[in-house]
Design a binder for these strands. Structure first.
Lengths: 338, 338
DNA sequence: ATTCGTAACTAACACGTGTTAGTTTGATCT
DNA sequence: AGATCAAACTAACACGTGTTAGTTACGAAT
């Protein structure tokens, strides 16, 4: 079933079929002919072969979604809605989404496979590493890339969803309650952009109150509740005097809550906890989790729209939706004792 | 940068390059030539164009991952590890994964786009609908399909991951504790295979103890904690005498827990709750959730291996790993009062 | 009556690969 | 010496599409 068959059915040449179905306006065609071709295609259930189309046109109509950390895909709760949003917008513009999760080391192959072999038209990178030569090279040669995560990228041209999140508001809140020694459990080991950037922001927010964040008050997890639990135990050991914890995400916050309970702490009386993301379960925990709401669906949609702009040669439009985070006060914080 | 360039660099014909790089053994080539071609390709950083390859060979080396319910992608916790496993195994065999999340109605387009236009070599369907004519037609004409979810498919030839889960053990446990009126909050509305099948299994398990499951003891959610909360409130209203709830998944169980607390119930004293999946957070809830552990990674890996068998014309090998669920007893169940 | 112009369409090339049928080279056998 | 054969390689076709340059038909202008 090729365009040739449609041509025969409609009594025209294959060229005409191509012009009609690809919507080209380079050549004038009679309306009656256009209709006849469309009806013939419909009747035969014809669908163009993407390989032929790709070879001839050079565009694969495919975008690559790079998940730079396997842990993300394994346990983190903001991937699914992000993927949903990306897939939805992409489909609306005729693009398909190729998902690639990078293993630890040989990302060389993965990147070049997608770009050189699969000929993707653009890519969205979730939670990119702070330093990635491959990625930097792609951006340098103006390959359409959108970085999604908590990012400040030096190259102004490069599109990225700005991490306009407000740790400040959360920190103000904790300090307002009377907390002075606040710990942090990061979402992953140092080297991931989101991790490093969030710590930096946290530190800056504390400094506005004349507070500091010594390394002893930081522990590192891997997105999961278990890692949050283990890291929190280490944290309480390193810095027993902390009265509050800012967790890298809600799942980690959950692990912190359990660790605190195991040490006989009552929540939120003995320890205040703030999460990040406002995953769907956060409001249902006991106590309900005070958290910083990120907007994965809006972020995914915006990233995809920006990427489509880039792929079609336009400059990426500024996001027209508010991507900034929102501080959600629930019941997991209280004033410190003493 | 095409195979032609590699041919020139190596001083051979393009045919020779193709034979070497596609690993064809149809023609005898000198080892020295093979080496020279490989080195030339390496030196030039050549990667074959998948469109050309696809057109010539007819295989796209792509598998489609169909997420049949947007809710799944939005909130459910077993998608990420499943996707991770599928992507990993697929990559190991040279396949890429194209993700498609089906919107409500026009799935006609989505299916035929993937199969006819993108020419995927096979597909994995997550949580398929009980009745789907499109899907049935594909299976009928022996297109490689693996259904992943809780499924009993009539066509023996069709490969599916058997839902060898054990509601029985959980029900035995609850009945053993003394419960007689047990409610259920389903993961989605009727019509999804997993939902219908799980209710059927639950009913069968109860019957072995001479107990029944009237419709009034069933409420329907949509995978989310919120839906679990709302459905549980309805359930307590319809059937105030239930002493235990079997939740469709852990997230719904969380919502049920909150609903119970809002009604002044103490957990697990006044209500026993069992989840499903053993998502990473389940062990960290308060009380820790007793649940039925599913194995998304093993399921995803197995589904992909089976699909690869099918795509390569072999019969799908029986899974060599244990995919059966495991009943995990924690602290969310107790004997009923009175 | 010839030229011109335009609307409507199409022949033919290009994209990059896999593969079949065929050619060259050089050694071995009668 | 000529015939035979195998090893090593290659010319040419096929896959399905988009697009450029060109052809046909036909009414209008000179």
């Amino acid at each position: 079933m090729t365009s040739h068959d449609v041509a025969r059915e409609a009594g025209v040449s294959r060229t005409t079929v191509s012009m009609v179905l690809s919507g080209s306006t380079a050549v004038v065609l009679a309306d009656e002919t256009r209709l006849r071709v469309k009806q013939a295609a419909e009747r035969l259930g014809y669908r163009p072969n993407s390989a032929g189309r790709m070879l001839a046109s050079g565009a694969s109509k495919t975008i690559g979604l790079i998940v730079s950390n396997p842990d993300l895909l394994l346990v983190d709760g903001f991937i699914p809605p992000t993927l949903y949003a990306i897939s939805k917008i992409a489909a609306g513009h005729g693009y398909n989404v190729l998902v690639e999760s990078l293993p630890e080391a040989n990302d060389d192959r993965a990147f070049s496979d997608l770009v050189l072999t699969r000929r993707i038209d653009g890519m969205i990178v979730l939670n990119p590493r702070t330093e990635d030569p491959q990625l930097a090279a792609l951006i340098e040669r103006n390959f359409p890339v959108v970085l999604l995560g908590t990012i400040r990228h030096p190259k102004e041209v490069t599109v990225n969803i700005p991490g306009t999140h407000d740790l400040q508001e959360a920190v103000d809140y904790l300090v307002g309650l009377g907390h002075k020694r606040i710990g942090h459990v990061a979402i992953s080991k140092p080297g991931s952009n989101a991790t490093d950037y969030r710590i930096m922001e946290f530190r800056e927010a504390l400094q506005k109150h004349g507070l500091d964040l010594p390394d002893s008050r930081i522990a590192y997890g891997d997105f999961s509740a278990k890692s949050g639990h283990d890291a929190a135990l280490a944290l309480f050991n390193q810095a027993p005097d902390i009265t509050a914890v800012l967790a890298g995400n809600d799942t980690i916050a959950l692990g912190v809550m359990r660790a605190a309970r195991e040490l006989g702490k009552s929540l939120p009386r003995d320890l205040s906890i703030i999460g990040y993301d406002d995953l769907p379960f956060a409001a249902y925990l006991e106590p309900p989790l005070t958290t910083i709401r990120s907007k994965p669906i809006e972020q995914g949609e915006t990233a995809t729209r920006m990427l489509i702009d880039l792929m079609q040669g336009r400059a990426a439009a500024k996001p027209d939706v508010d991507l900034s985070t929102e501080f959600i006060v629930r019941g997991s914080c209280a004033g410190p004792l003493g």
